[in-house]
Design a protein around this nucleic acid. Structure first.
Lengths: 143, 143
DNA sequence: CGATGCGCTTCACGAGGGCGAAACGATCTC
DNA sequence: GAGATCGTTTCGCCCTCGTGAAGCGCATCG
């Protein structure tokens, strides 16, 4: 709140705002609503998996078989970043890894399972895989 | 601008704002400055590349193959400044450079890959290359 | 003023390798 | 026993990367 004749403040943070008093309740509400909108545009709830292999994002969920549940846990540990093939193999099969393609096949199956949750497993060639949300709420850069 | 007793508007876009008139020039300036800050906060964060060759700017990203990832790292080290062709060749191929055209071709491919991130590699003839943003966020200050 | 050389851009091609996808069978769970 | 889960094999697409070569603009030189 800014007093009647003082200088307007500078908003250092994007999630700050100010208003000159006296102001109507509706004006304050509008400013608060604007702040809330800016906040929700930035923050998105992260997916979460429990010990029973139930993966939840928002209000939707799917149940994952053991191997894919462990793979998902490893991907969620580094959510939004690349997880190497080796790390995924070690996470999915703690007692020695099976053949080369087992991981590929499970990633393929996992992809189809998590797609309805707006989750996507992106391939980073010769590096590994990356878990992220496939659709993002509209916040288009000015172009 | 909102008239004296009308209802406050709803800001649909994060890059909108409003002010109730009459207002001092300083207040309007402050609001405009706040908008400019929000804009630059979205568009201006410096690009960043991790060890996995993932180049991020804002909320978008692309994965770069090994050679182009090293070139990009070298360009980001001197972000906005010229990097000589020799320096790029040494960064891209630490164990001896291949043919002379290899660098040019990789720069071409890198250009197309980073274009969707609003990044551009500008040529400085007989000097080297320069990485910068391809879209300029704000016009000149109002005055 | 025109010609030539240089630097840079762009395309096309091929070798090598990573990865996707389907199909099949074996094992496990309810 | 039915359905789900898991591992393997096979096939082939497409990405990566280097090379050769043609196209184009600019500056210097004749």
């Amino acid at each position: 709140m800014v007093e009647g004749d003082s200088l307007p403040p500078m908003c250092v943070d994007e999630l700050e705002d100010w208003i000159r008093v006296p102001a109507s309740e509706a004006d304050v509400q509008a400013r608060v609503e604007g702040l809330r909108r800016r906040l929700s545009a930035q923050v998105q709830p992260a997916p979460d998996i429990d010990e029973d292999g139930v993966l939840r994002v928002g209000d939707r969920w799917v149940s994952l078989p053991p191997v894919e549940a462990r793979l998902t846990a490893a991907l969620l540990d580094r959510y939004g970043a690349v997880v190497s093939r080796d790390a995924l193999a070690r996470a999915g099969w703690p007692n020695g890894s099976p053949g080369r393609n087992a991981l590929d096949v499970h990633v393929l199956r996992l992809r189809r399972r998590v797609a309805p949750l707006t989750l996507a497993i992106r391939t980073v060639r010769s590096r590994g895989y990356l878990l992220e949300r496939s659709v993002q709420p509209a916040s288009q850069p000015i172009g």
